[in-house]
Structures are given as C-alpha cells and as structure tokens.
Amino acid sequence: MTERLPGWRDIPIGGVAFKPSEEYKTGDWRVFRPVLNKEKCNRCYLCHFYCPEGAIKVLDTGDIEIDYDYCKGCLICVNECPRGALESVQE
C-alpha cells in the first residue's frame, strides 16, 4: 500500500467512518458488463430496483443510466429486463 494512512490522533473517535463508500469503486470486479439499448427500454425501472448496487440510476429525464464505477456485473438486470433492453458484453 502506497497511501500513507492517518495516525490515531487524526481519525475520528469511536470508530466513526470518515469516508463515503462511493470513494471505493467496485466496477473492476466486473467480468461482463450490462449494456442498455435505449430504444427498447420502456422505463419500467425494474432494473433500478433489482440492482444490488444502486448502479442503475434514473435520471431527471426519466432515462436509465448505468454507473460502471460501481456495477459489479452480476447481470440481474440483463436477466430481468422484460423488454430485453439490456445485454451482457464481456469486458
């Protein structure tokens, strides 16, 4: 590990966590990536609810966006999409 970790005086007491999990990218766990075909998507948002990571976001426009920083490639979304709008592609 190259990063120098803070000493005991410089971390919060009581084991209070001081970094958000978003700083830890889990995208590199992925072997297959889900790819969205926007044409086929009917915005049912099931993929959003089924995603264990919260990596499938619903934008203000109502469109779906996959955040590959966190997607672990479980492919639940590909398996569950009722319209077949998601397909898996090897990384």
Partner: peptide, 28 residues
Amino acid sequence: FVKVRSHEGREVPFVLDPENPITIGPLD
C-alpha cells in the same frame, strides 16, 4: 457532544442524528 469528521466530510456532533448521519461500529 464533541465533533467528529463524518463520511460526508463535515464536522458533526458525535451522536446519531438524521441531519448529520454518522456510522458507529463499522468493520475495522
């Protein structure tokens, strides 16, 4: 309450408070 640095990058009271969330008792 003393202040601690939270994961949201703020100095917040060391207490479970919905306005200033902190995590107590993580895996360490």
